[in-house]
Every structure is written in structure tokens, then in C-alpha cells.
Amino acid sequence: MNRLKVKKNNDMRKKIVLYGLIGTFVLFFGMTACAPDYETDFEVKSLVVPDRSLIPVTFPIEGGKSVAEVQTNVDFKNWTATSNAEWLKVEKQEKQVVISAGMNDAFTPRVGNVTIAYGHQSYTIDVLQAGKLPSMLVDGQKSEVYRSVSARDTTISVVVKSNMTLDHILIPDSANFVHVESITDVTGSTDEKLVTFMVDRNIARKPRYCTVTFQSSENHEQTASFVVVQAEMRFVEIPLRVDMLSTNATEPKEGPIQNLVDGRSDTYFHSLYSSTINEMHYF
């Protein structure tokens, strides 16, 4: 009985040792399984353009220069700085990009952007350059100029002053009674043109209007306009007199032709019926 008990105790001890060893192994593998199989030593390449350098750049008409800071550990030859406009120059330097523009001869501001990039790490800087100040005036004003003309065929002229090329004169289709006749230089002035228009006769009994707009392709937003106001056709009342009337066929037994204009309702004129003539009756 004792021998059996000792054997049982020995078996129990063996099992404890065995499970203990298995547990230790599992614990060991569990602890070491997450260790990297190999040592990694990647160098993170980054390129950053700080926020203060991403503020839109504004150049005056004369042009100018601006510097954008670049914080990077990328080799100088591996990152890029490009511009999307020919007038906008970029020069890549160590840790910075110099942005420059020359004189803007145009009458409009121009925009462009500079892109500083390394792979997908890309930054864009907007650039705006002012342009020359455009002007366009008709008879000294931009608008609110009215030129009144009579209902007859006539011509009118206005002086257009502009420092741009005058290459568009817009007359609406719905008011095509005004036509450009000529554009001539104004003596002694380099920026003024005398523009003459022909206005068709107005046969309607109401006035009509036409807004003429001057525009330049150098800056289509800068326009000047004036309004042609053409009077309506006016009719003069001419009283009908007996000397304005005639006929070839008055009936002698009835009322004469002057009865038509005597203002009375109890008199009348009658054409010939008591005899014939060799032509059609007229009145």
C-alpha cells in the first residue's frame, strides 16, 4: 500500500516537472516571438516647407524676389522646385527656394504657383503679380454718358481714352441701328481715339436706346460705355385743303368735291354716274 502511494507521488512530481518545463518554454517563446527578425535602420526622408513660407507671395508690377524655406534631409539633387508659369522663375538653393518675377507689362494681374516636392511630399506656393493700371473712358467717363440724337439718319462721335488697345466695340444685336463708321486718332494725343457711329433713322413712334461698350483684349474687365438715345419719329398734322383734292369724275347733279372737307355731315361728294368717261374713275 505504501509502495503504491510512493509511486503515485513520483508520477505526480514527474507531471509537475513536465508541465513546468512546457510552461517555461511557452513563456519563453511568447516573450521572444515579437522581437524583430532583423534589425531595421531606415532613415526617414522628409521635406517640409514651413507654414510661414507657404503664405501667398505678392509681387509689385516691377517684379521682385521672395525666398521659401525648405527643411529637408533629402539630397539636394533629389527634391524639386518648379513653376507653372514662364514669367515665374524659381532657383533651388541649399535649404531654400528663391522665387522671382520680372516686370509685368500686361494690364492684368497675373498668377502662378511654385511647387516644391519630394515624391508625394509636395507644397504649393501661390504667387500674384500686379499689372499695369488699365483705363478706359468715353468722353471722360466710364459710364453714364448719354448721347441724344434725332429720329433722322445721323452720325455721332465720342472720344475714347485708353492706355490699352481698343479692339472691341460691342453693339447689342437687339439695338443694331447703331453702326461703327470710323475710328481715328485724335491729333496731339496718343491715347485717345475718335470713334464715329452712324445711326439709322427711327421710324417708330417711341424712342430707342443702344448701349455701346468699348473693351480691350488686354483687360476685358475694364470697359467703358455710353448710351445712344434716339428720339421717336414725330408726325406733323397737316390740315387737308380743297386744293389738295382732285377727281376726274364729279357727278354734276350731286355734291362737288369741296364738300369732302367742309366739315359738315349733311353734305357729300358723289362720283360720276350720269355719263361715262374713257378711263377709270379716280379720286
Partner: peptide
């Protein structure tokens, strides 16, 4: 061609 005002 591109406009003078905006290369886009």
C-alpha cells in the same frame, strides 16, 4: 495657348 494672366 496659355493666357498671360493665368497659366492654368
Amino acid at each position: 495657348e496659355k493666357t498671360a494672366k493665368n497659366p492654368m
